[in-house]
Design a protein around this nucleic acid. Structure first.
Length: 512
RNA sequence: GGCCCGUUCGUCUAGCGGUUUAGGACAUCUCCCUUUCACGGAGAAGAUCACGGGUUCGAAUCCCGUACGGGUCACCA
């Protein structure tokens, strides 16, 4: 069991956009695979035809791609291998015919049976049980003796119903009283008595397998060595262990990841939390075709994928050192499944932003400029030249968490200010103010408009007149930028040049 | 409610029986830098290690209870 090649899978169901918890699960799988020189497969679990959402699969593939997680096999790996690999298809709906034989095998070995109870009948039984004070009726080793199934009906009866085309499901025949144990990579030994487990449906009335059958059959067929999934699967893991046993298959190692919790209140982070809490829960924007609403994604919010991935990796794991900033490649080296936490992690958007800020600083100048220009385009800003872009970006880099910040806070670098901070106007734009800037403008005109000479000229002016910086500085800044926040005003003036600077000063004098 | 899992600063976490006066990061606050805002630097505050029992010379670390939190109990995944 320990020495087989590492092959892991991420197996989402295409019922909507993948949320960040799902991305983290995929990431951990990917990191574990790459670290061990293994394969990461993407399989789509679309056995519930009623919950299928068009576009969800494409979204999942694109989201992973954006994160830099590319499947070695399966969906999204069609460019690497024909049909995505040797175990194609990787969409469970397309594997439908394969599951039947395995369900039959379990019936033959008396580990499963046909059940003819209709959904309506089951609802009625549950309702009756609820009335009788049992809110949680289960189809199990006790109750199955009074239901319509292959265990209570005669062989002839079963055969007749089958040939008559009567609808049925196939259920697992859960052993009566048996301790099922398995060693979870993260939680250690987990033990459950089958007494508490029910006869789960394995094959549904429409011929599709349920998750339980499909994931076991496929994981075995695809030679999956480690099943790394969310903690919500822990309660059904014993059933899966039993299924491997019934089939006589080697079981993969299990690792159940802690959940991502909401920052407020209780419960796990869910898709429905959407933008309610002021941050995205999805990697990419998702447009709901029915409601026409768009749920925001980290990508569109301005996050770099490497920052998003880094942040996600640290929600439930850490390297045990003080290093927090990691590239994907560094994560592959340092990640350790055994160091994944057991408790759920409450998500904190403030820290998420910090990760982006750190990665923004780490980017090479040319890569950063590239994203800068993309963001400028998005904002409809025209950039005179690369040199200008580079300078403008650098000027505002210090205060940026996102590359877009260097644009949003620097609009006055591209266009003349159309409004002036009213609070500052009231306080600093005195009767003398127009005179200050008019004199300065004339003085500056005699310099070469470099940052240093502008500043020098300004200082000389203050000294000559006996003015204080606080008296004149904000006035100049207001005239040029419309606000008093930002980098050195002389650097800004140098960047926009003499003509624009003089134009702005004149405009301020005439309008304020 | 049954079952399963968990519980260290507000948050993410280090810690795997003695080196711990419990370390780091985010957030918060203070000071320095900057006659702006930030960045950066220095520092502060913040955790009776959920609680109660054991085991041990010694426990945040091991065991058992209790409380609290989470997950799960469909012909959904």
């Amino acid at each position: 069991m320990k020495n087989r090649p590492v092959r892991v899978r991420f197996a989402p169901s295409p019922t909507g956009p993948l949320h960040m918890g799902g991305v983290r699960t995929a990431l951990y799988n990917y990191l574990f695979a790459k670290q061990n020189g293994g394969d990461f497969l993407l399989r789509v679990e679309d056995t519930d035809q009623a919950r299928f959402v068009p576009g969800a699969e494409a979204y999942i593939v694109e989201a992973l791609k954006w994160c830099g997680i590319s499947p070695d096999e399966g969906i999204g790996a069609e460019d690497k291998m024909a049909q995505g690999g040797p175990h194609a298809p990787y969409r469970q709906s397309e594997r439908k015919p394969m599951y039947r034989a395995y369900a039959d095998q379990l019936i033959a070995s008396s580990h499963a049976y046909y059940a003819f109870d209709t959904p309506v009948e089951l609802d009625a039984v549950r309702e009756r049980a609820k009335q009788a004070g049992n809110p949680n009726w289960q189809y199990n080793s006790i109750t199955r003796t009074s239901m319509k199934n292959g265990l209570t009906l005669s062989e002839d009866d079963v055969a007749r119903r089958l040939s008559a085309g009567e609808p049925y499901v196939i259920r697992v025949k859960m052993p009566r009283n048996e301790e099922v144990k398995f060693e979870d990579r993260i939680r250690g030994w987990v033990s459950v008595n089958t007494m508490n487990l029910d006869d789960k449906v394995l094959l549904k009335g429409d011929g599709m397998p349920t998750y339980h059958l499909a994931n076991v059959v496929d994981d075995h067929a695809m030679e999956i060595s480690h099943v790394i999934r969310g903690e919500e699967w822990l309660p059904s893991a014993p059933l899966h262990v039993l299924l491997y046993r019934f089939f006589g298959w080697e079981q993969p190692e299990f690792a159940h990841l802690p959940l991502l919790l909401r920052p407020d209140g209780n419960g796990k982070l869910s898709k429905r939390d959407g933008d309610r809490l002021g941050f995205p829960v999805f990697p990419l924007d998702w447009k709901n075709e029915d409601t026409n609403d768009t749920a925001s994604g980290y990508r569109e919010r301005g996050f770099y994928p490497q920052a998003f991935v880094n942040m996600l990796a640290f929600l439930g794991w850490n390297p045990g050192t003080h290093q927090e900033i990691f590239s994907l490649d560094q994560l592959i080296i340092s990640f350790n499944l055994n160091k994944v936490n057991k408790a759920g992690a409450r998500f904190d958007f403030e820290k998420a932003k910090w990760f982006n800020q750190q990665h923004l600083r780490l980017l090479s100048a040319s890569d950063r400029l590239h994203t800068y220009k993309q963001e400028a385009l998005l904002r409809g800003l025209t950039i005179p030249s690369d040199v200008f872009a580079q300078k403008a970006m650098n000027l505002f880099m210090d205060r940026a968490e996102f590359i877009g910040d260097t644009l949003d806070e620097a609009l006055y670098v591209f266009t003349d200010p159309t409004s002036f901070d009213p609070a500052v106007c009231a306080k600093k734009w005195t009767a003398e103010a127009p005179g200050y800037v008019e004199e300065l403008s004339a003085l500056f005109a005699r310099t070469d408009y470099s940052e240093a000479t502008l500043e020098e000229a300004f200082k000389v002016y203050l000294a000559d007149k006996g003015y204080g910086f606080g008296q004149v500085g904000p006035v100049l800044r207001l005239a040029i930028a419309g606000t008093t926040q930002g980098p050195s005003i002389f650097a800004v003036m140098h960047l926009i040049g003499k003509e624009a600077s003089e134009r702005r000063i004149l405009h301020a004098i005439t309008t304020l």
